[in-house]
Each structure stands twice: as C-alpha cells, then as structure tokens.
Amino acid sequence: MNRSGTLLLCALCISLQACAAFRLEPVKPWQRGILAQEAMQLEADPAERFADEHIYFSKEGSTGGRAVGGGGCGCN
C-alpha cells in the first residue's frame, strides 16, 4: 500500500473511532457519574476563561461566542 493509501486508512480508522465515541445515546441520571466530574463541565475553569477573554479581546480582532454580557475595556 502506498503512503497516501496508508494515510487514508488511518483517517478512516480515526473517523470510525470518533463516530463511536461521540455516538448519541440516552443517558439515565444514574449514568452521569463521569459527566458530573469537574473536568467534564463546559465551564470547568471560569477564572481561566475570564483571563483569556480579556487577553484575546485585547490582542485580536474577534471576540464573543461563549456568553453575553461582561465588562468592557479600552485595552491596548
């Protein structure tokens, strides 16, 4: 098998694994033990997010997407 074929096969395997990992399944409340852990929260570290939003708002031309509101600044 040539190199591009090997890469294609690898990509296919990874895609199949990803599909299996992210398959939609009903989850009963008593099956949410992993989801209840701190590391699995969508807002796992608000202090880091708060700092990042200030940094990248000040240094890039884009902002927003995660939430509404919050204080502005005239940052340079």
Partner: peptide, 9 residues
C-alpha cells in the same frame, strides 16, 4: 448544550 453519551457533552 447536550449530553451526547456517558462520556461526552
């Protein structure tokens, strides 16, 4: 936001 499965949100 959605719980996808027991390991994914």
């Amino acid at each position: 936001s959605r719980i996808i499965n027991r390991r994914t949100v």
